[in-house]
Design a protein around this nucleic acid. Structure first.
Lengths: 251, 251
DNA sequence: CCGTTAATGTGTTATTGTGACGCAATGTAA
DNA sequence: TTACATTGCGTCACAATAACACATTAACGG
């Protein structure tokens, strides 16, 4: 796969790549989709290169799709990373040998790569991790327990999380991370997890319902301990409206 | 200049550039620094290429510095633009001929360029426009009267302005756009101009002073019609604190 | 079968923030 | 001196928010 790209490197944007931070929510944890290639001992963000005949946004969708299979999800460019030494010594001679890439062609990989960071919000329940079979492991990992990552991927992940926290105040986020039907406590847990702080149940309910994007369903969650919470869904139409205009007006 | 870069194109990041949207405030107008090269009939944002041995943020500072001469100003990356056709047919044969660039070397320029957008907030009074002398015109232009721009520079400018409007709600902006001493009405005009809407004088005063980043000086503006307004300055220390923590907490 | 337990749903109150506006103070110009 | 535009300060009603009290529900253990 990588070899194919290198061998036809004139078909790809040189010195430029895309890395995706894919967020999901499960078991009251904010998870990140990470991959590990067979030979490596560090994890990395799913990423890819940019065909010269594709918009960068399209290339990002391709990367996301290749890993998750889902379409039409929330995907947003958040920052571009280009420190001089960010991928220095990442592909050394040994690595090139292993990948069966000729030294001459390998030079394409050795230069400084600038990478464009995208973050995605996906419905955890709709994603099959490890759909691979190729020489890599794909796994959802709690954002608080992310192991050492290659290159500057840790920095990229942190920046994505920062951006997500800011955006949480500007737009309704839950829609993309939760299944169609969900409970208010679940939504609150999501907010608490992202913001890493406790919120008051009752005030949260009032605030979130006042936005006017939730539809209370005539249905309760079953098979739960204690009182069964009511189910809600997002009102897509009003949701899109709020998404367009933003939440906080400020001035 | 451009010829030098092309002739030594192996020293620059291929297919990647930087464009800066430089904002200034003067005469109650939000101005943008634009340039026009001699032969062209359209204006463009100041931009440049990225030396392979420079961080992209450093390269952006270089671009800004080359145009304005100021240092240590607010400069922030806001988005990266990479549509396939964004610079199609920008450098045609005629242009290359005019620039005395060989056709072979010119190919470096002909591919799709991805550009990283930065926006800067500078103190208008400290900038000398048209410090050039080279074959280009540098000019401050009211953001409401920006003429047709090359490529997708209009889109880049619009996005910068959108970002600025959002950031205005998240952090204190005025510090970078106004001279050291300023009046509340001036600051209000700045906000009104950026947001393109009228604000109530009295509520604005209350809100802006409550942030706690302004120091009321024992000095009034002189030589003005009507009542002389008081002068203020930013309390750098508190300003930095607020800048770090943000304004609106949200949740 | 019933009381315990740990959740959810609903309501109350005090405080703060915001929008809309009144009015006096100030300095320029006629 | 007066008219006038602009600044500075204050008031009021209302909305938003934080903190908290209490009733309701359903599983579970005895």
């Amino acid at each position: 796969m990588l070899k194919d790209i290198i061998d036809n490197n004139e078909n790809y944007q040189p010195g430029l790549s895309i890395d995706c931070v894919i967020f999901g929510f499960h078991d009251n944890q904010l998870k990140v989709l990470l991959i590990k290639v067979e030979r490596a001992n560090k994890w990395s963000l799913p990423g890819g290169f940019i065909p010269v005949d594709q918009d960068i946004d399209t290339a990002a969708i391709t990367v996301l799709n290749g890993r998750t299979g889902v379409e039409g999800v929330f995907l947003r460019q958040f920052s571009t990373f280009g420190k001089v030494k960010r991928n220095e010594q990442h592909f050394d001679k040994k690595a090139l040998e292993y990948l069966q890439i000729e030294e001459e062609k390998g030079k394409w990989l050795m230069r400084r790569f600038v990478t464009i960071g995208y973050y995605a919000l996906v419905d955890f329940s709709k994603i099959l991790p490890n759909l691979t079979g190729r020489h890599e492991i794909v796994e959802w990992i709690d954002h608080k327990e992310v192991p050492e990552l290659i290159l500057d991927h840790r920095e990229i992940l942190d920046k994505a999380l920062d951006t997500l926290r800011v955006e949480l105040n500007l737009m309704p986020i839950g829609y993309n991370l939760l299944p169609e039907k969900f409970t208010i406590p679940e939504l609150q847990k999501l907010y608490e997890t992202i913001l890493d702080k406790k919120l008051d149940r009752r005030n949260f309910l009032r605030k979130i319902t006042n936005i006017g994007i939730l539809t209370k369903l005539d249905e309760k969650k079953s098979n739960v301990a204690h009182k069964a919470p009511n189910l809600y869904s997002f009102d897509k139409e009003k949701y899109d409206e709020v998404l367009k205009n933003g939440l906080n007006q400020g001035w």
